[in-house]
Design a protein around this nucleic acid. Sequence first.
DNA 1: AAATGATATGTAATCGATTACACACAGTTG
DNA 2: CAACTGTGTGTAATCGATTACATATCATTT
Lengths: 329, 329
Amino acid sequence: MTTINDIAKLANVSRTTVSRVLNNNGYVSDEVRKRIMKIVEETGYIPSLSAKSLRTKKSGVIGVILPKISTETASRVVSGINEVVASENFQILLTDTELNKEKEIEYIRLLQSRHVDGIILLATNINDRLISTIEDAALPFISLGQDLPGVTSIVYDDYHASVDMTNMLIGQGHDKIAFIGVGEEDPSVGVERKKGYFDSLEKHQLLINDSWIQLGDFSIESGYECMKKIVKRNEDNLPTAVFVVTDRMAIGAMEYLREQGIRIPQDMAVAGIGASTLSQYVTPALTTIDYFNKEAGKKAAQLLLQQLKQKKEKEKFIQTYRLIKRDSV
Amino acid sequence: MTTINDIAKLANVSRTTVSRVLNNNGYVSDEVRKRIMKIVEETGYIPSLSAKSLRTKKSGVIGVILPKISTETASRVVSGINEVVASENFQILLTDTELNKEKEIEYIRLLQSRHVDGIILLATNINDRLISTIEDAALPFISLGQDLPGVTSIVYDDYHASVDMTNMLIGQGHDKIAFIGVGEEDPSVGVERKKGYFDSLEKHQLLINDSWIQLGDFSIESGYECMKKIVKRNEDNLPTAVFVVTDRMAIGAMEYLREQGIRIPQDMAVAGIGASTLSQYVTPALTTIDYFNKEAGKKAAQLLLQQLKQKKEKEKFIQTYRLIKRDSV
DNA sequence: AAATGATATGTAATCGATTACACACAGTTG
DNA sequence: CAACTGTGTGTAATCGATTACATATCATTT
């Protein structure tokens, strides 16, 4: 490996001068600049960013912590983040917690030790150790998906999205609306979306029937199973619509309905959340809510870059959403 | 930031001893070890991996270069890679070329300057500068998707997959089979898959009709447009099947057919490649080929980790595939 | 009792960059 | 012409770790 010292020797200058040329920093005569650049190119010299990072305390790397790497949401968000940070010559160091809370904390510390300049966390839960780890890290930090105390956060407006969707179903004349959700460990998907559903029903003074409510685990299969349970338990009096808190589970639910010959939307309307590609191309096309994940990723990256330039107070941003009405309703 | 020196002072030892404790390296008395560990925990000391990396020439980071970050294929492959490397405590540094050849080269050099321990490239093309940049980098390197000379490569068996699919269609009694492909810049998708199609037709002495062949750009929309052109140009004599080289384009094609009231598969059979989630849940479910992308990612990571341990000769691996027959045929 | 080897710790060089500071030389200014 | 300012370059400390080598102690072996 050629180092800055080698270049300096070859060009008969001190390494200070080479560094000045490379960083466009301070005075260097044209003649020397050219000489050095020529040698740099000939040798194919590549500066060591570890050394640079050690000295400057900056790495040009942004840490991203994902709950699960291979989901469409994650992929869209990362794509948005990358678009923004790459344009400022940062790279992304990717970690995947596999939905494990311990790993979330572990990775924050790891990223810190790697001297990342900032961290974006796609958060799925809130707990004290997490908060204090983030505080201790004392790094520019953005939380996406959950509002973490003391941390600049971008959140999806799960509550209102859910209310809107339920209202819309009610507006279509449905008064028996089933619900497929997830567990309450996830404040956004598990709590807020369910709350929106309940509140809307209540406001319209509609019946809430426990046998219409099932919880899944985000997978397509669990959507299928939940739908099956709902249908089995209400064979004599089926609900006329089902609101599913994620598209994937909604797809599973649709599959079961199709198998059973229950027509969508005539016999049962189906609505999801997430605006996955899938939702657009299933038949019938799924009514859903678009959270603009890629935009959220971009926003997160922009906020982070701002924080890199100057420390800011915690802020909270609410990502807009859009209800996409399609044939499943 | 606490450093190893701070710990050393607090523990009344030299930093050498601290380093020994932290790396479980050489002799340290139990008493001192405990004392140091206690202080490490109290202070929340986190070693600087930049410094470590500078000294040891190892970073614990694997560079991954993707052609496009937000595709299902990429996401599956990355997920496979991550699963393997994370288990050995490596992280992934992610870069996205946006299908730009220059960036491919730029990123290899960048990753090199970041002292990544190895690189996995999801390759989409082959060119001399790329090869020589890889050579110069002198890093453990794996190419996934294209067989690069001198580089251990994992390739999908595009040719035979394509032959198999075409044979299958022919076996179903189709003799007018249209084709939607991509440009030849992409040796795997653009060249090999097309070659498989042609060879199969030829072998069965079937007509090859230029107006049945269209090239798209990987997008769903382009699949739609290609299908449209094929139908328009052959209104009096429609082909009875269409083989599309990617699932996304196949989905686009299906959409156009549906709009036109052309029934799938009765009027036209459709086949894709990729086994996207989408392919499983569209109606009718799309016949496609599964390349086991996640497995390929794992394999790539395993090969890379092996190379980290000992340098190896170039090898070439052919990833298996599986034809999934569904309702669209 | 001397030699040997295992255990325990420290000294100091090193990795490859950046940067504060010093110095030299020009041209300009009052 | 003395003082100042703008250019151009070098010296050496520094970032935070690892590691070859040296040294010291103690128990064991011959």
